[in-house]
Amino acid sequence: MRLWSIHPRYFDAQAVTSSWREGLIAQRVLAEPGSSLRSHPQLQRFLEAEEPLEAVAAYLGGVADEAGARGMDLDRSRIIAAGSLREPLVVTDGQLDYEWGNLRRHLLERSPDVAARWARVWRPQPHPVFVVVGGGVAAWELA
């Protein structure tokens, strides 16, 4: 499961689609308290939110917004919460940089045109549910 901290504007179509799919999986896991996948490292920051389902719904909403801007049709009725956050989730600049390196490698392999469009971006903007703070790569990423 990969729930990118990066704004979906930097994604190719494959990353938009997979972010939607992975977000829906995360939503299902968070909605089922007994799920064995609740301990998945990618879910940690959503579980730390005051309302985890609202947090993942807001994440899905951001992906759906980007998809809509590209003319892609994602079924928003699959989002089961309102997606309103009182406070944004936190992502460190180190985590954002780490993910940016991973995403750039994927884009170079499968979507060189998209990689070229963003080649001059040193650090991308975060997904709208996140606010960037100083720090290293998340411990759950390295686990």
Rank of each mutant, 00 (worst) to 15 (best):
I80T: 15
M72C: 02
T17L: 12
G134C: 11
D73W: 08
D12L: 07
G68Y: 03
H106R: 14
P112H: 03
E54I: 04
R45L: 11
Y10W: 00
G83C: 01
A57L: 02
D97C: 11
S19N: 12
S77W: 02
D75E: 14
R117Y: 05
V114E: 15
E54F: 04
I25N: 10
A58Y: 07
A116P: 07
H106S: 14
S111H: 11
E99Q: 11
A57G: 04
V137R: 15
D93W: 03
V29S: 09
T92Q: 03
D73C: 09
G101C: 05
G61R: 09
A58T: 06
A81K: 08
A55F: 07
P126C: 09
A55R: 04
Q44R: 08
L85R: 04
T17K: 10
D73Y: 09
T92H: 08
D73M: 10
L96I: 06
L37M: 15
G134V: 14
A116F: 06
I25W: 12
V137A: 10
A15Q: 14
L89G: 05
Q125H: 10
Q42E: 04
Q27C: 09
P112T: 03
E141M: 13
G101F: 03
G101D: 09
A138Q: 12
L74D: 05
A13D: 14
I25R: 13
Q14L: 15
D97I: 10
E87D: 14
A138N: 12
M1I: 05
A82M: 06
E51A: 15
M1Q: 05
P124W: 00
L103W: 03
P124Y: 00
S5C: 07
P52F: 06
E48N: 15
E32Q: 12
A57T: 01
